[in-house]
Amino acid sequence: MPIDNYIFLSLALFCIGIAGVLTRRNAIIIFMCIELMLNAVNLLLIAFSKMHHATAGAVNPDAGINGQIFVFFIMVVAAAEVSVGLAIIAMMYRNTHSVDINFLNRLKH
């Protein structure tokens, strides 16, 4: 499979995530869009690691394995990030009784 198919697929998923962050006002859905962007990057990293393996794999059988380890660590960080982020959203809901991020501008005063 040519690499540009994967590049443009990940690009489209990433930009859908960006558009979701910019348009939605619900904090949970914004958070889900961030997860979507992380997954688009993961897909591209794995595609690039397989691309590197296709060319350098004859010389070094482990070529490209670093990209997959990197994806593994991104998943680790994402899991930790989600637990803290959802705790913050739950706390925000307890204080303002809403998850609408427009109410967060009261942090200003």
């Binding site: 499979m1 040519p2 690499i3 540009d4 994967y6 590049i7 443009f8 690009l11 489209a12 930009c15 859908i16 960006i18 558009a19 979701g20 910019l22 595609a47 690039f48 690691s49 397989k50 691309m51 393996h53 296709a54 060319t55 794999g57 059988p61 482990d62 070529a63 490209g64 394995i65 997959q68």
Partner: peptide, 29 residues
């Protein structure tokens, strides 16, 4: 979002990485 996508597609469509293949269904890594 659409403008970001447009810029990235325009930047990447002539990259010299285009003719490379990501191998599917094989590879041990």
């Amino acid at each position: 979002g659409g403008a970001l996508m447009l810029v990235l597609v325009a930047a990447l469509k002539d990259a010299d990485i285009r003719n490379r293949i990501a191998e599917t269904n094989k590879g041990e890594i």
